[in-house]
Computed example of a mutant assay.
Amino acid sequence: MNDVSKDTFKILTEDIPEPTSQGGVSSGKIVHGKLIPPQQQIFLFSADDWEAFVEEWAHYQRTQYKIVTRLSASADMGIDVAGFTDDEGFQGAWDNHQCKHYSNAIAPSTAIPEIGKCIWHASEGRFAPPRKYYFIAPKDCGMSLKKLLLNSADLKSKLFEKWDDWCADSITSTKTIPLEGDFLAYVEAFDFSIFTFKPTLDIIEEHRKTPYFAARFGGGLPDRPSAETPPEEPDPNESRYLQQLLDAYGDHNGQPCADTSALAAWPELVAHFNRQREVFYHAESLRNFARDNVPQGTFEDLQDEVFSGVIEVEGAAHDSGLSRVNAVTQAAAQLPLTANGLISVTKIQDKKGICHQLANDDRLKWVKP
């Protein structure tokens, strides 16, 4: 029986205070919650996602590779993502990126069979030995493997030591590969310094420079550079939309307008012309920004959305081609774009300029027959 008296036993309680304020909360945090850093997100990737991520990274190593390809699992020969530096393919200079997506860091018992597979297929003439063979994994290589990869003599010794246990029966499902004869001589002469690893943080930082980073990891787009100022002399790629503008001015004035010199008599049209070139270059700068920061097709989707938003205005009756230009660009400026990945960096000038890009492609016409 408890010796404590009912009269002396007390339960002390304390009111829970209001949580400390974190200040204002952004709409992004309300919608998406706390952003998970990329180095943690990759732990949630599937094996296919991991290989696709590495492929995205490798594809944009333009200074190193002419072609990047991913082999199917059924015939990979120990090759996941290959980067070729010339037109000779697997018989030329190339790098292999071996992608492992395990819950733990890569151990020697995983890496050495892959190394054995690479050496054996190379000895069979299926490909020239790669220039570099990188192990890549979300949790990197374990310390014991890193030590081996940083010392090619030790790596070679470990492969010889563990060949029968780890390699002989894992290279191909059809037969055991003994380390003997001509193959033994080939392994003895092989350059084991090609085998190394690529730290995951390095790949993430290099992937950050690709158009796929924001789409894969979130966190928003980088700051957008200022739009280029239109050159005094129009560029040849402006020819069609500028001709459409001149046609619209001629339609407005009731007389042909062959070139910009004909606008001198109408200062208000000169100012209008210059403004249209400015917004066109705004849209061109957004096109260039999209090329470097979002997946291919994102900007084209934005153009299609603007087109859908203004085409009924373009097709309506207007007093002149100039009235149509103004009505369409004003309608574009008011479009409530909500879905495209570029909306956070899209300005009113861009939406107007996209109209002239569409006119440049004859998708919009200012003067109707």
Rank of each mutant, 00 (worst) to 15 (best):
S308P: 00
E238C: 13
I67S: 01
A52F: 11
T8G: 00
F273S: 04
H272N: 11
G23V: 00
I136A: 01
P230E: 10
Y186R: 12
F192K: 07
K365C: 05
G23N: 02
V367L: 06
T172L: 11
F190D: 02
A75S: 09
A333C: 06
A283S: 12
D95E: 12
Q243T: 08
A52I: 11
T229S: 13
I194E: 07
A227R: 15
S27T: 02
I203R: 03
N326D: 15
G218V: 08
K352M: 12
D80N: 05
F53W: 11
K158M: 13
A264N: 05
A128S: 12
P129I: 09
P225S: 14
F273D: 09
C355A: 09
L148W: 06
P108F: 07
P17C: 08
F43Q: 11
T210R: 04
L245D: 01
I171K: 05
D361Q: 15
L302C: 07
V68K: 00
R208N: 08
F195A: 04
G89F: 14
V25Y: 00
P336W: 10
I79N: 06
D202T: 08
F127Q: 05
G33A: 04
K198C: 04
G142K: 07
D350K: 05
D76K: 04
G220Q: 15
H207T: 11
A122Y: 07
I79K: 08
E51S: 02
G181D: 08
K117G: 06
G315A: 13
Q296M: 12
G309S: 15
S21R: 00
W366A: 00
A327R: 04
A189P: 03
T346W: 01
A75C: 00
F90M: 07
E268P: 00
A93N: 09
A111N: 10
Q61Y: 05
R126N: 15
S152G: 01
I115P: 00
H282Y: 11
I136F: 05
P231W: 13
V270S: 07
P231E: 09
F9H: 09
F160G: 04
W57Y: 15
A317D: 15
V345F: 01
I194K: 09
Y102D: 09
I67A: 02
E18Q: 11
